[in-house]
Design a protein around this nucleic acid. Structure first.
Lengths: 230, 230
DNA sequence: TGAAAATCATGATTTGGATCAGGCTTTATG
DNA sequence: CATAAAGCCTGATCCAAATCATGATTTTCA
């Protein structure tokens, strides 16, 4: 039996552009009713509970999707270029966002009218199945993260995140990390102090190299093993 | 600002019978293609990764939905009578279950053919929206649980579960608990020993009363406060 | 460009719960 | 019905990671 390795990785690899399923006509309609907005690092894109008049498509940038209760915050997922935000509100009569979202770096958003989306769901069945699939894959992803954050210890969770950043976000073993230690801590469910200590140790053990904001993954295999053993 | 109290409660209050949206004709078709199965306490109903030929409707009983990696197990949600199991696989070309499920108590399942379900999604738009809504509410629920299990301490998590059992599962402040301490521990993310100690303390503080398998919630308000303050 | 704020880093201390070990009680089962 | 197995309970010990405290460094922006 192979052992499932649930990861606290936050990024869905599934390409997430359901609009390919639309007819040319529908796509044009969509374009006409779409507007673009730019957010700069740290800006709030949407707030849990607020009215979701639009679904957001991330054209460029990196977005953090999270819950918070005033004291603590839980990052549910991060959305890179090509991801959607707010889709899970489409079935509500009065759609409100189920989570908050913030720009990690400067970000460009395409706002897609929610009522148009609903209409498209009515008339295009392929589009429907695509949306259902996005919602499902999304849950699966978050559930995996759920498992990781509750059952692995910090060592493994941090390894998860580093692998996730290298493999899925920056797609290179070598990248400039825009995130602070605090933000890394939020992602891996620990305090900034612990992040710092563990990163240092990873470096001493030759798993990664850091200098300033530049990160390099040196030993993928060992990192993976740490991710697996928790 | 009101403070959101995410709960590790595992039960969705949303009524979850999407088949009400079907026409009489469609319902009949569904009935013809449906079979019933009984599971007894502890039996595995489905296994993560196995082929999902059917969606399961829980007619009677109580089901645990969980992930496990061979060592640890994470309860995602519990499904009472009237809940669905495996719906999130409906969009997959070759549907497989995304999680495992087990009967907490003797349980009756109605198996609904997956391909028929897909066909119904094609022809009935109200049904589609219902399915999307079930998937979304479900995520919201699990995300709340995610927050609670990662950010509250055991005190609050156990309070959550007790309230959940009273309010949503047994719908009474007084109930026979079929679950073992170990199972309660899985639900609230702690060891059986800790569950026992905390239950004892709850009892000493007059929040609950226990005798054998009978549980009584005595002080709702205090329990809620504990749930809120973590 | 210079002061305030945020971030990074490190050490010392504390702590919530896990783990371990043992005995007692209820429930299965040959 | 006996005995094994599972579940319940309590106490002692341990440990991962949070918290607290304090500087050094970098970033921000008035």
């Amino acid at each position: 039996m192979t052992r499932e390795n649930y990861s606290s990785c936050t990024i869905n690899t599934r390409p997430c552009f359901p609009f390919g399923k639309l007819t040319a006509e529908e796509q044009q309609l969509l374009d006409e009713r779409t507007s673009r907005i730019r957010y700069s690092r740290g800006e709030l894109i949407c707030k849990a509970g607020s009215f979701a008049s639009h679904v957001m498509y991330v054209e460029k940038g990196l977005v953090k999707v999270f819950l918070d209760n005033g004291n603590d915050s839980l990052v549910l997922k991060i959305i890179p270029e090509g991801g959607l935000l707010g889709l899970s509100s489409v079935s509500m009569e009065t759609p409100v966002f189920h989570y908050s979202a913030m720009a990690y770096i400067d970000t460009e958003i395409k706002q897609i009218d929610m009522s148009l989306l609903k209409q498209l769901l009515k008339q295009n069945h392929d589009f429907v199945m695509e949306v259902i699939d996005i919602l499902s894959t999304n849950s699966v992803q978050i559930n995996g993260r759920f498992f990781s954050l509750t059952h692995k210890q910090s060592y493994g969770r941090l390894a998860d995140i580093i692998l996730c950043l290298a493999d899925r976000v920056f797609k290179s073993s070598d990248f400039e990390l825009a995130l602070s230690r605090k933000e890394l801590g939020e992602l891996s469910g620990m305090t900034p102090e612990t992040v710092i200590r563990m990163l240092k140790q990873f470096q001493e053990e030759g798993l990664i190299r850091m200098s300033g904001k530049t990160f390099t993954v040196v030993d993928y295999d060992k990192l993976r093993r740490i991710s697996e053993t928790g």
